[in-house]
Amino acid sequence: MNKRDQKELMVFLGMIGPGLLVYLFIVAYPILYSAWLSFTDFNPNSGGDWSFVGLLQYKTMVEDPNFWHAFKNNMIVVAVSAFGQIPIGFVLAYILFRNRVKWGHFFQAMVFLPQFLSTIVIGILWKRMFAADGPASRIIQIFSGDPSRQFDLMLKADTVMYPIGFALIWMYTGFYMLIFLANLQKIDKSMVEAAKIDGATEPQIFTRIIMPLMTGAILVSAILAIAGSLKGFDLIFAMTTQGLQRNNAMVLPIFMYQTAFQDYRNPMRFAYGSAISNAIVIISMVMILFSNWVGSKFNAGEDY
């Protein structure tokens, strides 16, 4: 290595060094600590001795019915994101792109509006919507003619994810719409014009030109949706009250939180909580790899 290379190396290290140190301390260290903790019985709150317990925490996790309940709910959230938010966002973006509605900018702003609101505010808003004699109950009462009828889907484990899914779509669809709209606007309009001159119909333009060019954006959106869905905590936590509703709607991050931070009876709760959080990461990675694989089959990343 000559002097010039050495100097460049020093400059390189000097430039990335501070950022790398911050990254290692704030991101890498907690990940490694969490991985280590999940193989021990250590309780950082009480301190003291610890032992290596192998896969005990993971074994406890897969034998815990609450884990599978939370996992099932998380998969529903992923499905709502992937097959609800993304398609609706895409359709809305396409309608705006093709100028199919008047006041497009107004609708664009309205759909994107929830992104400007705090998640906690949105959670409380939807909690009020589904409360006793709240707007959802009032609608049921009007249509049924029974003033005592209540919107009770939040109380049942097998129906609680419907209202939550609805709220998730309301909140995040605007985000995906904007991603798709930005990508649609990058498409060379002359391609669409040429297709129209050649007699292509609107569905043909959509399926033969737009869709192939948008697979990359759809893949990126799917990855964002999966990662966001699996770590999603705040909206569901704010929408539900402590007790039956939150137990019904429990997703893996809430299960991890309740285990590590609230279950004082379990002295290994931090280690168990770490195992759950590692499981969330592993599940996310598997699903993202799957998305990439699916994307590759559809030629994701095709050039404009």
Binding site: L155, K156, G243, L244, Q262, D263, Y264, R265, N266
Partner: peptide, 20 residues
């Protein structure tokens, strides 16, 4: 009473009220 038994009791009373 804390942790899971307490949570279960609280949610259980709500289930009684809801007829579940």
């Amino acid at each position: 009473l804390s942790g899971a038994p307490n949570d279960t009791l609280n949610a259980g009373m709500q289930k009684i009220v809801a007829g579940q």
